[in-house]
Design a protein around this nucleic acid. Structure first.
Lengths: 103, 103
DNA sequence: ACGTGGTGCAACCACCGAGTTGCACAGGCG
DNA sequence: CGCCTGTGCAACTCGGTGGTTGCACCACGT
C-alpha cells in the first residue's frame, strides 16, 4: 500500500504547490480563498489541488456551496518514513561494498 | 544548513531519475554503464545526474577515464526528517483548530 | 425572486524539460 | 602509435504542464 511515492514528489516539485500546501498547513481553506491570498488565478489553484489530492497530500470536503481543503500531514510523515528507509539501505550497501574492497 | 529541499523534490519527481537513483543505490556506476542498463541515451542520463548532484543526492568522482557516481542515502534521510517535522506540524495545527471548534 | 460569491468545465497559450542525435576530445590498452 | 571506450558540448524536437480567460451553473442571504 506504499502507493508509489513518485507522484508525491512530482506534486511537491512545484513552488506554487508548496505555497498552497504551506497555506493549507495553517488551516483549511477554499479554492477561492487561496486564490485571493496567492498570486495566481483560482483555476490554477484548482488544478494544483487536484494534483495534491491525487498524491494524497490534501483532502477536500464540500461544505455548503464551497469546498474546503485541508493538508494531510500524516501522508507526509508516511513518505518521510519510506524515504528514510531507502536512504539507509543505500548507505548500508555502500558500506558493505567498501568493506569488501578493503582487504 | 537546511539547504532548501525544493530542488530535491524537483529532482525526485521524475521516474527516470528514480530509476537512476535506484540503480546507484545498488552500487556506484558510470554514466555509460547506466545508459546500458536503462532505456535512455547516455546524454539523458548525464543530464539527470547533473540534477541529482545539484540536489545533493548523488556524488561524482573521476576515476581514471570514467566518472563514477554514487547515491547519497544520508541526504535522503535528512530530507525525510524535515518532511516528517512539517507533516507533524500540520496535523498538530489541525488538531488545535478542531478542538477549538468543539465547544 | 434576485443578486452575489463559489465551483465546474473547456479552450487556449507559452514555456520548461526530458530525450535525441551528432561530433569532438581524452585516456587506457593492445 | 592506433584503436576503442567513455566523456563533454551543442543544437534540436516534442510533449507535458503551469497559467490564463470566458462562460455556465449552483447555493446561500436578503
Amino acid at each position: 500500500m506504499t502507493t508509489t511515492l513518485a507522484p508525491v514528489f512530482a506534486a511537491l516539485g512545484d513552488d506554487t504547490r508548496w505555497a498552497v500546501l504551506a497555506r493549507l498547513g495553517e488551516g483549511p481553506a477554499s479554492a477561492s480563498a487561496l486564490a485571493r491570498e496567492l498570486p495566481v488565478s483560482r483555476q490554477a489553484i484548482v488544478k494544483h489541488l487536484e494534483v495534491l489530492v491525487a498524491a494524497g497530500l490534501v483532502e477536500s470536503e464540500r461544505r455548503g456551496r464551497e469546498v474546503v481543503h485541508r493538508a494531510l500531514g500524516g501522508r507526509l510523515s508516511d513518505v518521510a518514513r519510506e524515504l528514510d528507509r531507502i536512504g539507509r539501505t543505500w548507505d548500508a550497501r555502500l558500506a558493505r561494498i567498501k568493506a569488501l574492497a578493503e582487504e
